[in-house]
């Protein structure tokens, strides 16, 4: 590096905030440049001087003042959360509905063989004794019942 670095670059060099390659280039330049050595010493003395200054106490109402300048922030955070929660609930509801449909009783049962019809007819006739039996509909079914061979 032939040209002297800017004062900002020197400050970054002093705090080791530069990338490795740039840090090394400036280091080589400073070893041969008395001007930059002086500037660096001045920077270091300023930093040391600042370090000796007392740290001021934070005012009590600092957060209130900051919060005043951050309107609606909690709502934004809530908005970011609630739709995710709702989407999760929707997915869960969808899965639940799917499971219910899949487990709908008797959905895929084969039709009973002809040999079962006599049992079904007997069951229907015996069931006709219940108060809430639909006897008329049982009659419609029994009208089609054939004798066993």
């Amino acid at each position: 590096m032939k040209q002297c670095p800017t004062i900002n670059k020197l400050a970054e060099y002093q705090t080791e905030a530069l990338a490795n390659r740039e840090q090394q280039a400036i280091h080589q330049h400073i070893t041969n440049c008395t001007v930059c050595q002086r500037e660096l010493q001045a920077l270091e003395s300023t930093v040391q001087l600042l370090a000796t200054l007392p740290v001021p106490a934070l005012p009590d109402n600092l957060w209130a003042g900051v919060a005043q300048h951050l309107p609606n922030n909690p709502r934004i955070a809530f908005r970011q959360r609630w739709w995710k929660a709702l989407a999760g609930a929707g997915v869960a509801a969808g899965i639940a509905i799917g499971l219910l449909v899949m487990h709908a009783p008797n959905a895929r049962l084969p039709i009973a063989p002809a040999s079962a019809s006599a049992y079904v007819a007997d069951h229907a006739l015996l069931s006709s004794q219940d108060t809430f039996a639909d006897r008329a509909s049982i009659g419609v079914m029994l009208a089609l019942q054939r004798s066993e061979p």
Partner: peptide
């Protein structure tokens, strides 16, 4: 099985 009339299981 499902009975022919659909309202019973066998």
């Amino acid at each position: 099985y499902q009975a022919n009339n659909g309202d019973a299981i066998v």
